[in-house]
């Protein structure tokens, strides 16, 4: 695999997008659709004041908490449902219900029932994501290879070993899918949660600058956070994937 070349292509492709933006901005009202330099200026101003780091940090912490919560609870439920036909039949309607519950409804209800606090905010985000994780991991658990389960039974693997050495490695692609789609969905919902009921974070800042009609700062925050999420993807998720699938690489 050549790794330098795709990187070069990504850079060229992103520069193209930047150029397109710049060209389009030339003919637009700079207050409505600012050109890249204005956004960069806003970004530097927010960074210098320390606001950028503070709000990015707050949002990132919420994303991380909701992500861990949703993935842990969602996979436990998904695996249980996938491995137990009876449970699945009993709870499948619940899964469908929660899957189709609008994020906004969950967020509003969480704030009404539990107050405008951090627990309600993170919980609401997690509840929005959990059904997706359940569905993905349930498919994975349904596709588990029985022959490995038989092997584990004959050699009397402990429950922990059955999970660690037999079940979870088979579910790795499903974890990867759930976490990739999860992290993107979660950060978008976190912004809504912040907009509706928090006094810090990227969502709060976007709301604030929307009221001030400061589009450059809105874009500065959005792009900064996208950049952070790209870093998380490249520095955490991808290396983890490579580590978890190292056995697939033939090395003989």
């Amino acid at each position: 695999m050549t790794r330098g070349l795709p990187l070069l292509w990504s850079v060229v492709s992103l520069l193209g997008l930047l150029g397109l933006w710049w060209v389009l901005a030339l003919g637009a009202d700079p207050r409505v659709f600012p050109a890249p330099p204005a956004v960069l200026e806003a970004l530097l101003r927010e960074a210098a004041s320390g606001d950028l780091a503070r709000h990015l940090g707050a949002t990132l912490a919420r994303v991380a908490a909701a992500f861990v919560l949703a993935l842990t609870i969602g996979s436990a439920i998904g695996i249980a449902l996938g491995m137990n036909h009876g449970l699945d039949r009993l709870f499948d309607p619940w899964v469908v219900l929660f899957l189709n519950l609008p994020a906004l409804v969950v967020i509003v209800l969480a704030y009404v029932w539990f107050g405008l606090n951090e627990v309600a905010a993170i919980g609401a985000v997690a509840v929005n994501k959990i059904p997706n994780v359940v569905v993905t991991l349930r498919e994975g658990a349904r596709a588990l290879d029985r022959s490995y389960a038989e092997l584990a039974r004959v050699y009397r693997f402990s429950f922990a070993s059955r999970m660690r050495d037999v079940v979870l490695p088979q579910l790795q692609p499903f974890f990867a899918a759930a976490s990739r789609s999860g992290i993107a969905l979660i950060w978008k919902i976190v912004l809504v949660v912040e907009l509706l009921g928090r006094s810090n974070g990227v969502g709060f800042q976007i709301h604030l600058h929307f009221q001030l009609f400061d589009v450059a700062t809105i874009l500065a925050y959005a792009l900064a956070f996208v950049a952070v999420m790209l870093l998380v993807e490249t520095l955490l998720l991808r290396p983890y994937d490579r580590y978890a699938t190292r056995w697939r690489a033939p090395h003989a």
Partner: peptide
Amino acid sequence: PRIGVAFQEPRLLPWR
């Protein structure tokens, strides 16, 4: 007894 088994296919865990 502990049973040692060889199935028709090797049945090794590919990720170990």
